[in-house]
Every structure is written in structure tokens, then in C-alpha cells.
Amino acid sequence: MNHLTENEMLQVVDGSMLNGEKTRILVHLESCPRCRKEVEFSRNLERAARSAPLSKPSREFTARVMGRIAPQLKPSIGTWFINNLANILAMTLVLTVVWYAVTLKKADGPATGPTVVSNALAVYSEYYAKVRELFPADRIRAVQSPMTDQSAETNKIILFTVISILILVAVDRLVLRRVIRLRR
């Protein structure tokens, strides 16, 4: 007895037997337990192949892909605004305080520079120098207990210390963001 060929067996499994061959193959299967068993084996094998578990990439895979495509994405103005909210607030505060300092200087006397910017820089430099000068122990105590020393000079020291911190925060944030972007 001639058994089914591999090709004929797969045709039975796929249900793709040619019309002319179909009757012969089916008649053979009726009378041949070996070929029936082989066909059954193939069917079960392919059923198992179809339900084989999928391989999974690592947990952070999607985040990594999104990180790599981030520079290609053009964010909307709203998204850009939210992402940069902290920077915008910090810079607004810095500018407000600088403007306040310029106004104070103008109230003290005539402007010394030709422009508002150079005035602001000059005022900031002047007060920053004072902070450095007054930084020693007695002034630290004065800052720590403002209720006991309410002089205008102490207030200015606190003010410009805050400005310095804000500038540092803004710079740090910008640097940090760049480093993160480069790592991606």
C-alpha cells in the first residue's frame, strides 16, 4: 500500500486537497490507520505551533522606544508650556526681582547706566557683592532671626539670595534636561 506523501498529508491538514486527488486521498485515509495517525499528529502539532507563547521584550521597552522618538515629535504650544512651566516661573521671578531692584535703585538716585539692562546688571552685581561681603557669621544670624533685625539691608540680602537660588535652579534644570535628552 502506498502511503500519503508529505505534501498530500499537509494538503489534508490545510484542507486544500485538489478535487481530482481528494477522493483517492480520503479513500486511502479510511483504510490506512497509520496515515490517519500521521495526519492527526500533524494537526495537533500545528495547533500547538499556533498557540505557542509569544516572546516578550523587556518591561521598559515601550518607554525606551518613546524616549528615542521624543526628539522627532513636535509638541503643541500647550505641551511645550506645561513642560517648561517651572522654567517660565523661575525666569519670571528672576525678572520681577531684577525689575524691583532697578526700581529701588532709581528711587535712591539717578540711573548710572545707559540702559535698563545694564542698570539691572549693575544693581545685581552690587548687591551680590554685598551679600558676599556680609555673608560672615553675624549676618547669618541676622538672616536667621529676621524679627529681631528688620533693616532694609537684611531684606535685600534675603532677596538676592533668593534670586541666586532661582538662577541656579533654572540653570540646573536646563542642564539636567539636556543631559537626559542626550542619554535618550
Binding site: H3, T5, E6, F41
Partner: peptide, 10 residues
């Protein structure tokens, strides 16, 4: 495509 028989003993 193969025309041979099976090589998995029944």
C-alpha cells in the same frame, strides 16, 4: 516540495 514519505514512526 517533498514527495517522500514520513520519517516519524507511527
Amino acid at each position: 516540495e517533498g514527495e517522500g514519505g514520513f520519517d516519524v514512526p507511527a
